[in-house]
């Protein structure tokens, strides 16, 4: 199915969940409301016409001008190329979904139960952007609330490094964070 057909099918099935459609970009996507995202995700995976059984990538995007954080889900439908014994799998169709949330309180329902790849990708998106994926299977509770466990930075890291307004740490457990240590105006 072409991306336009997929977008039309989604809009017919979920008229209130699809808020925006962008087909002219190199990676065609639809924008899904965060609260309805798990329903749309199950539909994308289980519907026989679509069958997006693999989440190839989950990317986080920081848009400070619009005060939004985005999560971009790169989905592909893997099909066997032919039915023979040496059948290899091809990406039959490619689609993307964008979920936009407010930067002050970024919360997206987790789809780790839909695609297993979302488990670590959501942990990374939390670690580097601060998007809290509710219902993630590997969540921990601390002063930031209930959130997925960090995957790249240490568990007691402060801040979300890939945000545009991130301030570099001055020191971490006694190790200086910059060679401009104790200078009054460090320039990073």
């Amino acid at each position: 199915m072409t991306p336009e057909e997929i977008a039309r099918l989604l809009q017919d099935t979920f008229p209130d969940a699809i808020t925006d459609v962008a087909m002219g970009t190199p990676q065609p996507y639809v924008v899904v409301a965060a609260v309805r995202w798990p329903q749309v995700a199950y539909f994308l995976r289980d519907d026989p016409r679509l069958g997006f059984n693999m989440l190839r990538c989950l990317s986080g995007v920081d848009r400070p001008a619009k005060n939004e954080l985005e999560a971009v889900y790169d989905l592909i439908a893997m099909r066997p190329a032919d039915a023979g014994p040496d059948a290899y799998w091809l990406a039959a169709s490619v689609f993307a979904v964008v979920v936009r949330v407010d930067r002050a309180r970024p919360r997206i329902p987790s789809v780790a139960g839909v695609w297993p790849a979302a488990d670590w990708h959501e942990r990374e998106a939390y670690d580097l952007f601060g998007i809290v994926f509710e219902g993630h299977p590997d969540s921990v509770e601390d002063h930031d609330g209930l959130h997925p466990r960090r995957i790249l930075c240490p568990d007691d890291w402060a801040g979300y490094p890939l945000r545009k307004d991130y301030l570099f740490p001055i020191e971490y457990h006694g190790i200086p964070g910059t060679t401009e240590y104790e200078m009054p105006n460090p320039v990073h």
Partner: peptide, 17 residues
């Protein structure tokens, strides 16, 4: 610190620290 000297937020700038 090497190539991550300026923008490496998670890199120790030299193991002699």
């Amino acid at each position: 610190g090497g190539p991550y000297f300026k923008h490496g937020y998670h890199v120790v700038k030299g193991v002699d620290l």
